[in-house]
Amino acid sequence: MQPNPPIPHTATVDANGVHVATAQGKSRTYSGGEVITLTQVIDLAEGAATLCQSSSETALELVDESTQLAADCDVLIAEITEKGVGSNLIGKCEHLKEQLDLQAAAAKKLHDQIQGGEESCRTASANAEVRHGQIFRAVADSPLTKPAERDFYNAR
C-alpha cells in the first residue's frame, strides 16, 4: 500500500508554540509539550519542512544580494582607481567586498544545510505514515475506549 504523498502545511512560530495549518483547513498549536498522535507527528514534520523551505529561500535571497553588492564593490573599486582618489578608500572597498563574498558563501552553506533539514522533515513525515499509519488507523477505528488492563500486556 503506497501512502498518499505529503501535503504541504503552513506553519508559524511564536511565544505560544508552533501553529500548523493543514491543507484541510484545520489549525493546531503545539506548545512544545508532548506530541500525542501520529497526525500531530506528521503535522509537525510538515510544518518544520515548510519553515525550512521559507528559510532556505531567504538564505538564497541573501546569497543573491551579497553577490550583487560584491559586484557593485568591484565597479566602485574600478571607478575609484580610475579617478586616483586614494589607496585607503580602495582598501576599505576591497575589505567590504571580501566580507560580502564571505557572507554569500556562509549563506550558501546555510541554504544547503537547511535544504537537508527540509528533506529530513519530509522523509520523517512520509515514513511516519508508512511505518505507523496502519496501526494508528486501527486504534483510531477501534470501538475500544480504554487500554487493556496491565495483565493483558504482561501476559506472554
Rank of each mutant, 00 (worst) to 15 (best):
M1L: 12
P3I: 15
P6Y: 05
P8T: 10
T10S: 14
T12S: 12
T12Y: 01
A15T: 08
H19R: 15
H19P: 04
R28I: 08
T29W: 08
Y30H: 11
I42P: 05
D43R: 10
G47H: 00
A48D: 07
A49N: 11
A49D: 08
T50W: 13
L51M: 10
C52K: 08
Q53P: 03
S54D: 10
S55I: 04
E57Y: 11
A59S: 13
L62V: 11
V63S: 06
V63Y: 00
E65L: 11
T67M: 01
Q68T: 12
L69Y: 04
L69V: 00
A71K: 14
D72Y: 02
V75T: 13
I77W: 03
I80Y: 07
T81C: 02
E82Q: 08
G86E: 00
S87H: 05
G91F: 00
G91H: 06
G91L: 05
K92V: 01
E94Q: 14
E94W: 00
H95I: 06
H95P: 00
A106T: 09
Q113D: 14
Q113C: 10
C121W: 03
T123Q: 12
A124D: 02
A124Q: 04
S125L: 00
A126P: 01
A126W: 06
N127K: 15
V130Q: 15
G133P: 02
Q134I: 04
F136N: 15
P143M: 01
P143R: 09
L144H: 10
T145L: 11
E149G: 12
F152C: 06
A155K: 10
